[in-house]
Design a protein around this nucleic acid. Sequence first.
DNA 1: TATAGTTAGTTAGGTTAAGTAACTATTAAA
DNA 2: TTTAATAGTTACTTAACCTAACTAACTATA
Lengths: 139, 139
Amino acid sequence: MQPHQAFFHEYRMMYRPFINKLNVYLASHQLYSSQWAILRLLISEKSLTLVEISNSLNVEKPTTTRMIQKLIELDYVTTVPGKDKREKKVQLTSFGHDVCKDVQVTIEQFQLDALEGISVEEQIIVSKVLETVRNNLLK
Amino acid sequence: MQPHQAFFHEYRMMYRPFINKLNVYLASHQLYSSQWAILRLLISEKSLTLVEISNSLNVEKPTTTRMIQKLIELDYVTTVPGKDKREKKVQLTSFGHDVCKDVQVTIEQFQLDALEGISVEEQIIVSKVLETVRNNLLK
DNA sequence: TATAGTTAGTTAGGTTAAGTAACTATTAAA
DNA sequence: TTTAATAGTTACTTAACCTAACTAACTATA
């Protein structure tokens, strides 16, 4: 198999084992990996509109609407008015903040275990490569 | 962001742009990426049982049953009796072989474009790392 | 040789995570 | 001031998975 074929083959083959195991850990916090992706965004960005979330995650608006609705039901996020009457800014509740901290602790060990045998240098190379490929794909 | 967090962040962020674009190319052959994963297996393995396919792709048997049913409808694969009356061996039809060749040509350029700026050495490192992580996840 | 357990595959029904189309409400531009 | 665009929602659909429960066929054993 040629290097470029192997690259995408290995990329794809890691996906289900990764997501399945992640979802097992997240289940103890009533979360799925897609919801966790939003919470992670909100940890670093503090407050975002639905459109900003949609663009960051490369999903359509209705998908984001529904995921936010579930996160509101869980009381992990809340919305506040934005700069005009159309906008809703989404942000973590204080309960949501606490949950995120717990989740991060859980996920931390999971990630370290999954990366056993991979040097930090290699991790950095892979991160950079994957980011470049993502940008190529979005061009 | 720490290297191990960045690793999984970048891994996940590439997934949707990758699958979405792949599916656009595959659509011209009436295929989805999950079906293409099976066809790819059958190119290299010639003939496989449903259980072997399920294990290779880390999916459950009913999932594989359904995907094979669709591929049979498309006349891309066919089944032949296995070594006992329970087993069904799945293999490509000659039409399926032709389609796979066409798809491979299409995908080839897509992959090369997506890997623009990534050296072959880096591609090989990433493939090896992703394979190792997959094996860690399946432990 | 009857029976208990295993394996291959299917069917039925459900969930998550996504999509498109069409809509309302609001704001900006011509 | 009419027209465009933007933010978000609702309704409906789909892919890609899952579990539970099933049939048919095979294997080991008492």
